[in-house]
Design a protein around this nucleic acid. Sequence first.
DNA 1: TAATAGAGACCGACTGGTCGGTATGTGAGA
DNA 2: TCTCACATACCGACCAGTCGGTCTCTATTA
Lengths: 198, 198
Amino acid sequence: MPERGDGTRQRLLEAAADCFSANGYDATGVSEICHRAGVSKGGFYHHFPSKQAVFLELLEQWLGALEARLTQIRDESPSVPAALHKMVDTFDQVLGSARGRLPIFFEFMSKAQRDPAVWAATIAPYRRYRAFFAEMIRRGIAEGSFREVDAEATALLLVSLAVGLILQSLLDPQGEDWAEKAQRSIQLILYVLQREGA
Amino acid sequence: MPERGDGTRQRLLEAAADCFSANGYDATGVSEICHRAGVSKGGFYHHFPSKQAVFLELLEQWLGALEARLTQIRDESPSVPAALHKMVDTFDQVLGSARGRLPIFFEFMSKAQRDPAVWAATIAPYRRYRAFFAEMIRRGIAEGSFREVDAEATALLLVSLAVGLILQSLLDPQGEDWAEKAQRSIQLILYVLQREGA
DNA sequence: TAATAGAGACCGACTGGTCGGTATGTGAGA
DNA sequence: TCTCACATACCGACCAGTCGGTCTCTATTA
């Protein structure tokens, strides 16, 4: 049962996400968020202690959703390579559906450099991602899909590649078919992982 | 022959770079830059039309220097794989020496999303990087070091990897030995490129 | 059931301070 | 004396956060 103020709170969060995406954190005023949500300034500060609190909550939502999606794909896939491929397949979905929201990503990174609170909120899930993929690699080795590679190093490679691709696709959205590029790159990596090489 | 005001201008640029690195673009006030440079606000606006102009000039300097360094390494190396390895070797140098300055990187990206001027200044050199590496790959194929891969796709892979590694090393500086990780990753890629695989 | 008291939701004017940028002044060199 | 390189003082806009107050819903009591 939704509490009385939950709708307002949610509207504020969504409005904030829109504004931050469109204009960036610093350039977005609290009053702008309020206007968009149809809430007064007082209402805003009733629900959130500060502008940054909204920012952090959005960060948590976003990273959490991504992790949930990845976990879901992993659990639905028959094998580790299949799961990785599936993740790449949804790459452009992720990019497409959240296109407008992704620019906040940079904002997070940028802020994380300076603000310990943001840093903690960013680095923790990020390390979980690395651990998540390392675990996948280990599983792949166990199930016989992969050679006996260094799981941590390979996970780092995968995450780096993903991060780099996302970053570039953000920077230059219509420059390339990013999903296809991602597809190719991951295939190359998988090829190396799977083969019995020297 | 240095003009009368060149020293001041340079001091302003350096002060701005320091401030932007330490606190970010938005959080840095023009007066802060002026104070650090020992110049008045009038002096600042005598040399630069706006705060953004300084930002753009720094961006240009930074990207240009990186490109020059890469070109130098390429021209000094006996073969393409050697050049790539050398570039990776200097990876931690780049990270280390410019550690403090690199966070502006995010700022650039962040701003490039919204500001056409910054976008243009960012995307142009970035595309040159991709072309630069594609050309290197092609050269590697010509000299017999590499298999006949898709040069553009491989260049994208390399750049993505580099970007991803840089980004992560910025986010989590003392988490890993990033130079070594980079080393490993690039070796993996080179291994694939060089071998005569199926 | 009706009156009442209180708590949480929300309003919007206001504040204290900051910041980018400008207008004007000034001293030194040509 | 004229110009260039800078200094000083200042403006107007803006913005995060505050504060006193109102409205509405709910729980209690008579």
